[in-house]
Design a protein around this nucleic acid. Sequence first.
DNA 1: CAACACGGCGCG
DNA 2: AAAGCGCGCCGTGTTG
Length: 793
Amino acid sequence: MNCTKCSLYKTAQSVCLLGQGPKPAKVMFIGEAPGHREDDINKPFQGDAGKILDEIFQAIGIQRSKVYITNTVRCRPPKNRKPKAPEIKACRVWLEYELDKVKPDYIVLLGAIALKNFPELKKASISSVRGRFFQIDGYSIFPTYHPAAVLYDENKKAVLRVDLENFWNAVNGKNVTQKNGFNPRLVESKSDLEACYADLQQTKVIALDIETESLNPWGADQITMIGLGTRTTQWVIPLQHKDSEFCKLLNKPKLVRNLGRILADKKVVAQNGKFDTLWIKVKYGVDIKVSHDTMIMSYLLDENTPNNLKFLASTYFGAPDYDLTTDQKKGSAPLKMLAEYNANDVYYTRKLFFLFWKKMNLDFRLMNFYRHVMMPAVEVFREIEYNGIYAQPQMLSDLKDYLAKELKKVSRKLKKYGDINWNSPQQVANLLFDKLELKPLDYTETGNPSTAESVMKRLAKKHEVAAHILKYREYFKQANTFVSSWENKALDNRLHPTFNLIKVWEREESKGTVTGRLSCTNPNLQQVPRDPKLRSILQAPEGWTFVEADLSQIELRIVAMLSGDPAMKLAFQTGQDIHIKTAEMVSGRHMSDFSGFEAKEWRKKAKAVNFGLVYGMGVDGFLVYARDKYEVEFSYDEGEEIRERYFRTYKGLRPWYKRQIRLARLNGYVRCLSGRTRHLPNINSSNKGLRSYAERQAINSPVQGFASDITLMAAIEIHQTFTRDVVRLVGTVHDSILMEVRNDFLEGVVHKVHEIMKNPKLFETLGITPTVPVLAEVSVGAWGSGIKQEDLK
DNA sequence: CAACACGGCGCG
DNA sequence: AAAGCGCGCCGTGTTG
């Protein structure tokens, strides 16, 4: 074929490689462009991506000979380059030609480039449109990932398979989208409400979902409607909507109290139920217990893939896209439309619950963890968010003034270098490396000279401006990220952050972790500087005392448990300081030889050694890490020597690494002592980088995850042990629990909390026997300035 | 104007 | 897309 419509013909081996398959055909697949294998033998999808496609085809029962397969661009682009817009445009005539001959009813678009064939989808990202049908130009168009995406990320394989399976079912008339039992009913009268109550009374499992005017319950915004799903019906009770006459007549607090009473005897199922029940508690003071949460179930079954309701509904039930825009959801949509949306949510939530329940029952350790830890934790964190953490208003305002003053001082000193925006790394780099002709010491990811703190600290020895810039950055960050953000958020003198117990997906964005740790937003309490200026603002109000309970060196203790390394275990069992022990090993000296000052310095170095090396850091990384984080300089040889000595001292570590990697390869996941799993599909990847990354995760995740789980178990027990007028939990930071305790109960509570931290009852429930003691420390008084309770041992 | 990537930096 | 792991938030600068 001779085609010169774009310049690719000059470099491609096979010019204008048309598709393959019957003409006409009911189904057409469109990929990206030929790869080298295809280019050589003149057929589409023959290389590695073709293999993946074949594998999935076989699993589903699609025969290649029955479908037509082609590409968006029909000449191979030069190596490592995607087809460009003009090339896609030029090749469009060939697609028209093929469409005309093949006359497909269905078109599968594989990957982002294939989307560009249709103006309606051109701007969409593949992950936002994948897995559903679009009716365009008389075709049923179904986008999903390109099989080559699986080569880079094994996680995508499952998604691709489910997509194509749903697609194929739809093509063959297997009605996966049929909504059995979808029967939405909007409550518009008293008799409707009575019918709703009657239906709820006779149902055991009830799905709950609310719609709200915003995501923030702490302002004036209201709940617009409550959706309740039973076996037969999705009831929608409007609470606040311009189109509803009924809700104006309602005694809403009474209605919500009634619902609370009915739901108290039921299994309430929700998707991210902490959100819904927190709103209900804030607005109506009613506590509703969530028995099951589909978002948490989905996460525990696979922490890597998205778990928002629309994704799950389309993945498992081939649900059509019923999503509304944010504005519509906040109440701008007509009542009927919003109610139907709400009904869909509860419908799919309930359906998903039964599906996940079956799946989780196949793994009793995971199920136990879910029942005994995750779901109780939802209750605890709903209350933590409800309580909020007290921010002393006077101190906040004083610090604001102080920082403004300091910022002014530094700005004056910086003035003489010109009218520069000191927040701009670009402008700062210009000054340092062009005008002042300092030598760049490091470069950023994108190749620009770095102005990072570690670089600036070293530059400060050559030029005073670097030190001033660092001060400027410090004050600026404190003033904006913390002080002013807190001031804006603490309307009731309390910060009410959101804690993500799991990874939560919002469109393509996600918050939360894959290991089981929590994350925290609005504001993020977990990144408050360890500077008493800031931390001590967070304290307890009059009559109460702030208490922090910390797990001591918990990650290394877990490493000792899991690896069984004798030296590490012995150190912990005999109450030695592990960092001092490592310091002795690194320095080759005995602790008694150190002066007080030396001991402190060596302990610091040893911390770098412990935290760096234990999770598989290389020598190069270790040197940079030690220098930047702990201001310790080692030569390469010293670094190598330390690394060798480290693994000779803790000789159980490397065999443990091997065990973890073997388990991950065998099962596709690794597990925490608590039963939580971490899936690592890339552990068998042919891509060495991805594989090594998965191997390090196989080592780190069970440690990090279990440390976090101990914190959860302790928080749950503290929550269950004390009443709310004695102890109020206000937050957690990975391995520490923050609370306020009523003054007259302080002593007893501190003692009990310390006991709980060291040995939460849930250890026994879950069959966990720590082989290394778990120790904890309790501080009493404002955060970061509390007094350690030394005599608790 | 909003969305996004980047650089930078806070934390365990 | 190769060598600690895990996060969220701020401001700048670019782009559609």
